[in-house]
Amino acid sequence: MDRIPILRMGKFLLVTIQIDLYDRLATNLEADLIQMVNKTEAKGVLIDISALSIVDSFMGRILGNIGSMSKIMDAETVVVGMQPAVAITLIELGLELKGVHTALNVEKGMDLLKEKITMYDEEPEELEDEDSVE
């Protein structure tokens, strides 16, 4: 069975989705990623979806699940590189990807994760302002 590779970069996990996922692959990714968060004690998960031309409610739910599950395990999730057409479609569909942060590209996503983590360490009160998606 195919699997989406999960890369580890220090305290973060990096996933680049390069192909349109069929359901099994997506559910596997969800399970693998949570396992990895647990095993590596990662503080952040970055998912690059810039190659995805479609995000439907199923894929949206997977992304949301990953966000919520990581959160419970004390890791932040950032989804980066969403295509404009995909964003417009998701809004029209009625999905707002609650629970995950978003960033324009991998670089900005990494910055956001680092910022979140230092914020948690130093001043846990002022989180709300920087949240991209609430």
């Binding site: 031309s53 199923f58 404009p84």
Partner: peptide, 17 residues
């Protein structure tokens, strides 16, 4: 256009699911 394409395919994906 790309946006309409994406909307159509997403709707199709929902219904087929």
């Amino acid at each position: 256009g790309l946006v309409n394409q994406t909307k159509l395919i997403t709707a199709a994906s929902e219904l087929v699911r």
